[in-house]
Design a protein around this nucleic acid. Structure first.
Length: 478
RNA sequence: GGCCUCAUCGUCUAACGGUUAGGACACCGGGUUUUCAUCCCGGCAAUCGGAGUUCGAUUCUCCGUGAGGUCACCA
């Protein structure tokens, strides 16, 4: 009988989550959902020095926004409660004590400075530092105030990684390491193994920087007498400019920044998963449901992928276009320009339907729509900088615009009627659309870009359209 | 420096050892009665180098090279 699939995301509350970290969480979540397993959230707060205010809250908020719900963890509880490591200290201490009692762990008599000196020495000699070369012969009794080190066998390991395949590492990768710090807290290396075991985690997904530590983890399982879970190393997410890993230091934006800019969570998920995974077909846009259905570890890439924001922007636009108007409307509510508040839902919905296909992220909404809600100041550069209109005299432009005004005055401003009259105007003036429509468009919007002319005028309405044409006409007088 | 991982268009990637090396983003051109966008059509653009195995290597092996990771009382 196969073991149930249980995966986890185990971040430290050390700052806002960015896409690099969350991509690995996403893989773990998809694996669990794909196989009808469970996904757990565990907070690894064993380093009080690095913990930042609100860190845990940010983690939960990020996951919730993305829809990566956890089946067990903070807030929701579960059979292995608590899921916050600082509340599980006695568990780690218990296992540490057992190792100590069996002679598999010993107190470390060195000071931080002494260790540092030994380490420098090794580096200077261009050799890896191995603590076991300095293993004390008669270590002092452990009273909890000294760091406790696990005593590990010196041997090679090879194992099968669910993503990377077979990996082999020599004995120099296994060394005695600290499992309990002098402050009474366990180290990550030790306590995450205990938790993963106790919580029944079947697949441990870690990002690539942990690969060199896996022999240590394997050795620790042996010392504890535990079976090892399936390991899976996810490839790194690289920064925009390539080279190094995406990180806070390199200016990686918090995931919630994308939320605030008006990115869709499903688009960000689609994008993040595409950084290192594909389904083998040419499909690029996936719904979350499709990803759950199709995801598998054996199609995860081994090489790193750059975070290309341009591609994310495109993908977000594609997801926005796929939304139905009501859904989109309810999502953009907080992004409208100030001036939109004077307008009713029906009007705003019409505006939205006109800009849906050109919206890349919601923060663009004011730039794209403000002229629907307020009279923008006349912008002469729109005409003086227009490649066709700039060639005409103001008198000519005024003449054309006056004809336009006459024709529009007769219209009921339905899209159909406007289209007919506008086409008719093309004939009677003998003008190209590039001139006539541009002129009317600029006069009525004062914006560098807008949706189709008839649609725009129809939404704007007769009164506002004509009064804006008057203003433009006045400008031509002078 | 030891150890480990990785290596296809600028970017994300596809390709049972047999393809004119495919798609997408970006960029450039054209079309869809103006602009921006959408959509459609077209263009540019890649197997890191060298050996070997093979009738045939992007694919397998080895050696280089390059990039990244790791060698914490951080995770």
């Amino acid at each position: 009988m196969p073991k149930p699939i249980r995966t986890r995301f185990a971040p430290s509350p050390t700052g806002a989550l960015h896409c690099g970290t969350v991509r690995t969480a996403l893989f773990a979540w998809l694996l669990a959902r794909h196989s009808d397993g469970q996904f757990l959230l565990r907070i690894e707060d064993t380093d009080q020095k690095r913990e930042v205010e609100g860190g845990t809250e940010n983690i939960k908020e990020t996951l919730r926004w993305l829809g990566l719900e956890w089946d067990e963890g903070p807030d929701v509880g579960g059979p292995h409660d608590p899921y916050i490591q600082s509340q599980r200290l006695d568990i780690y201490k218990h296992h540490a004590q057992q190792l100590y009692d069996k002679g598999l762990a010993y107190a470390d008599p060195y000071s931080v400075e002494e260790l540092e000196a030994l380490r420098k020495q090794a580096m200077a000699a261009k050799r890896p530092f191995l603590y076991r070369d300095h293993r004390p012969e008669n270590p002092p009794a452990w009273d909890g105030s000294q760091p406790l080190r696990i005593k590990l066998d010196t041997k090679s390991y090879n194992w099968n990684d669910a993503i990377m395949g077979t990996i082999e590492m020599g004995p120099e990768m296994v060394d005695d390491y600290i499992i309990m710090k002098a402050d009474g807290f366990p180290t990550y290396n030790f306590c995450h193994i205990i938790d993963d075991h106790l919580m029944g985690i079947s697949h441990v997904l870690r990002s690539q920087e942990f690969i060199a530590s896996i022999p240590k983890f394997l050795a620790t399982h042996e010392a504890l007498g535990w079976e090892t879970p399936i390991n899976a190393i996810a490839p790194p997410v690289l920064g925009e400019t390539g080279g190094t890993k995406l990180s806070k230091r390199l200016g990686a934006k918090p995931v919630l920044w994308y939320r605030d800019q008006g990115y869709l969570p499903e688009a960000l998920i689609n994008f993040m998963v595409s950084l290192g995974w594909n389904d083998g077909t040419e499909q690029e846009i996936f719904t979350v449901e499709e990803l759950i259905e199709k995801f598998s570890l054996d199609r995860v890439q081994r090489s790193g992928a750059r975070f290309d924001e341009q591609r994310l922007v495109w993908m977000n636009g594609a997801h926005i276009r796929a939304l139905d108007l009501d859904d989109l409307y309810s999502r953009v509510q907080s992004y409208w320009p100030e001036s939109a508040s004077a307008f009713d839902d029906d009007y705003k919905r019409q505006v939205l339907s006109l800009v849906q296909e050109r919206l890349k992220f919601f923060a663009e909404l004011p730039d794209l729509t403000s002229f629907f809600y307020e009279d923008l100041p006349l912008n002469p550069e729109l005409i003086s900088g227009h490649k066709q209109l700039k060639k005409l005299e103001h008198a000519e432009l005024r003449g054309l615009l006056e004809q336009g005004r006459e024709r529009l005055m007769e219209s009921d401003f339905s899209i159909q009627d406007l289209t007919e009259r506008l086409n008719n105007l093309l004939e009677t003036t003998g003008q190209k659309p590039a001139i006539l429509f541009s002129l009317i468009r600029i006069a009525t919007t004062q914006a560098p870009a807008s949706p189709g002319l008839a649609e725009t005028l129809s939404v704007l309405g007769k009164e506002r359209s004509l009064s804006r044409i008057e203003s433009q006409l006045d400008a031509f007088e002078t």
